[in-house]
Design a protein around this nucleic acid. Structure first.
Lengths: 213, 213
DNA sequence: AAAAGTCTGTTGCATTTGCAACAAAAACGT
DNA sequence: ACGTTTTTGTTGCAAATGCAACAGACTTTT
């Protein structure tokens, strides 16, 4: 039996393979446009081909939560992205972006020849979701803003294999992702700098000290 | 093309079908025993046949977080349950329980005859994870203990289709699941009772007023 | 039946966090 | 190149939360 790949997004070759295998619908969006509404009627899988997008939900009082963020190679869709019955979950373009769309059932159902790519894609969907959910739950699960920040930073550091990195989110968006007040988060980032645990300027961060979080 | 089922766990018939189709290894555990360690070496999918189990992680300072909880029909496994590289993620028996184990790759790879059950199981895994992650992120994402509680309660209420329900977790465990201090949570539950938003005794809850959370 | 362990419930107090409001810098659109 | 919008950064103050510590009820084990 073939070993399944451990990655959580498609690489360039796989993206090309995906395009050939599924002949997806290609759509382009400009900043702020809604790419997909994750509701019961939605049966599409989306793959970010270029640009970035956010999965966002906004509650009645205007509190925004960034549930997930997508870069080229990331996939999303109602069936395997978190979505709720109450507040609308929207995938919106953070920057100008290009997206591929394929019907969920075409992906989940094995094709006649048990095409390796289908199995790979199914595995990837499962992995992607698992890792993203894992990260988010792990970060949100920390009891303090400091804990949330350091948990998130060290995850990014690990995935980039470097103690210095640029955050994939703006600080404003990061606050929405870790679900805390932005000014309180800024204050805590300042504290972390003062205590020489990190050095940061805007969203460029270097971890100086490993902290048990 | 067959419509895929919207459930997030196996029902009784499906459990029986699953057993026949996969011939899983059957294991029994007593309260507190470790059923599965979700690490890189682990390639099994577990299905709870009877009893209950928790997916738990404990940080260096002893803070426990309940990442997920499982009842009969629920599935878990490293490949699609949240797990991390730092703290160990353990599935432990909350009560005496029986578990079925199947290799992940046998599940994820379509069988020769494109058996309907395999496709169903893959879909179920994806759905299960999505819903569980959805719920947890949604709950943890609320900025206050009150918000977390009401978000969780209304989810349980919806899934039970009743305003009165018994929580699937003890209050102590609930605090670990929503990741807040237990005493602070108790205080907030008392407030909710005083304000007649809910009526509760121990882990039996009735929602009196729908609150925007 | 007693003992051990777990779960629910409570309170005072210190700390952390969120809120509101503002200002400067940077990015973006035309 | 200018105006607009977004992002970063800051502070005082009120409110929410976590911590510590304790007690009684309920379960499970021996």
């Amino acid at each position: 039996m073939k070993t399944l790949y451990p990655l959580s997004s498609f690489n360039k070759t796989e993206l090309e393979g995906f395009e050939k295998c599924f002949c997806p619908v290609v759509r382009s969006y400009s900043r702020g446009e809604v790419i997909m509404r994750l509701d019961e009627e939605n049966n599409y899988v989306g793959v970010i081909a270029s640009g970035t997008a956010h999965l966002v939900t906004t509650t009645f009082d205007g509190t925004k939560t960034i549930i997930d963020y997508f870069e080229p190679g990331n996939i999303f869709g109602r069936r395997f992205s978190p979505c709720t019955q109450i507040d609308p979950y929207l995938v919106t373009a953070k920057t100008k972006c290009t997206v591929w769309l394929v019907e969920y059932e075409r992906v989940i159902t094995c094709c006649e020849k048990r095409c390796e790519k289908h199995i790979r894609l199914i595995d990837l969907m499962i992995l992607t979701m698992a890792r993203r959910a894992q990260l988010h739950v792990e970060v949100l699960g920390k009891r303090s803003i400091r804990g949330k920040l350091m948990s998130y930073f060290s995850h990014i550091s690990r995935s980039r294999e470097s103690r210095t990195f640029v955050l994939p989110l703006s600080l404003s968006d990061l606050a929405d992702y870790i679900s805390v007040d932005r000014s309180a988060m800024m204050r805590e980032i300042k504290n972390l700098n003062n205590e020489k645990i990190i050095v940061s300027h805007a969203n460029k961060v270097t971890i100086l000290k490993d902290v048990n979080v």
